[in-house]
């Protein structure tokens, strides 16, 4: 019977969801710190170092500051949509974490607790669905501010996200051709058996990574926030924690897209070169270790995101569109056809 759930199942899922959301916030908080520290390091500065040891409390201070800032809602703005915008951005950023397998299942006798909120048949497509809805957070916020700069930035951001979803999806199809399933858990177990997808899909990964940068509005594709053209971008009129929500949602998106890339191409929670299931670890240790391995991969990707931001200058808008439509889409189509042909040939 559908939805005849028992109480333990609900408790288990609620605990998991709370942990993942808390973790997302924590990682997003400290990614802002890492961003400033890495930027300082690359530019031969010191970075934030006043609040706490090594400036470690800096994100807390920033968050507190945002909470206590005066909240300004422009008179000519559309009040309801103005508040809905950042809320949608945050909700969609947090929802994507629901289908990612965060570690190996905790199996102890008859108890089997998967470290994944929902292992549904659609798996990765759900991430795409939520990401495609995430455009509305930017568009609604930009439009309801009733400011030309915000509107232009919102339209830039939305068209960029819609354009880069296509090559991203095509790169994904090549992965799905190899695994034969959309389930995230199957994608990971396929990689544990047959080796990581990055070995078979290097081109696909590069396309996916470039698209992920564009989807997260990160440099070199951060045109919605190009301050020399559009002042402050789509969140120009926002202040206080509503601005904080937009900025935070961006970092959570970075975190989740790092997790998705690690899961799709870098074996998820798999430890490379060894077969950890033969080590005879206790189930709890085993789950925690696999989770730690995934986190290490995610942190590496986050570092690459930051590294790129402080290395590469911004694209021009026509260059961005040309790259998306005239280079990445044909490339990903070729990649898809090659993968399909090879899969067919090898399976015969």
């Amino acid at each position: 019977m559908l939805l005849a759930l028992d109480i333990w199942f609900i408790l288990e899922k609620v605990a998991l969801i709370a942990t993942i959301i808390g973790l997302s916030f924590f990682i997003a908080m400290y990614t802002t710190y890492a961003e400033r520290k890495v930027a300082a390091w690359l530019q031969d500065r010191r970075g934030p170092n006043r609040a706490g040891p090594f400036g470690l409390f800096q994100p807390l201070a920033d968050g507190g500051k945002l909470f206590f800032k005066e909240e300004i809602i422009p008179l000519t703005s559309n009040r309801f949509l103005f508040i809905l915008g950042p809320a949608l951005a945050m909700i969609t950023a947090l929802l994507t974490s629901s289908v990612i397998p965060w570690g190996a299942s905790y199996v102890d006798g008859s108890i089997n607790i998967p470290l994944q909120v929902a292992d549904v048949d659609m798996g990765i497509l759900i991430v795409f669905g939520i990401v495609s809805v995430g455009v509305y957070g930017i568009m609604i916020g930009g439009w309801s501010s009733n400011n030309k700069f915000s509107l232009l930035a919102a339209i830039r951001g939305a068209s960029q996200m819609v354009s880069y979803e296509l090559p991203m999806g095509l790169a994904l199809i090549a992965v799905l051709l190899m695994t034969g399933s959309l389930k995230m858990s199957v994608i990971v177990s396929h990689q544990i058996e047959h080796g990581w997808h990055i070995l078979y899909q290097p081109l696909g990964f590069i396309i996916f990574f470039v698209c992920a940068l564009a989807e997260c509005n990160r440099t070199p594709f951060d045109l919605p926030e190009a301050e020399n053209e559009l002042n402050f971008g789509y969140h120009q009129e926002y202040s206080s924690m509503k601005l904080g929500f937009y900025l935070f949602a961006e970092y959570i998106n970075m975190f989740i897209s790092s997790a998705v890339m690690a899961t799709l191409y870098f074996g998820g929670y798999d430890i490379p070169f060894v077969n950890e299931s033969t080590w005879g670890l206790s189930p709890l240790m085993f789950s925690l270790m696999s989770f730690a391995v995934l986190m290490a991969k995610v942190l590496f990707f986050l570092f690459v995101f930051i590294w790129i931001r402080w290395t590469i200058p911004r694209f021009r808008y026509d260059q961005l569109m040309n790259l998306g439509w005239k280079k990445l889409i044909p490339l990903s189509l070729v990649n898809m056809l090659l993968t399909a042909a090879l899969t067919l040939w090898l399976n015969k």
Partner: peptide, 26 residues
Amino acid sequence: AQFLAVVNIIVYAGAIMVLFLFVIML
């Protein structure tokens, strides 16, 4: 019908309505 549900959101809510919103906002 999980596939239909997700594709309905990706295609209609995520792509077509974004274009509608573009035109109306502009």
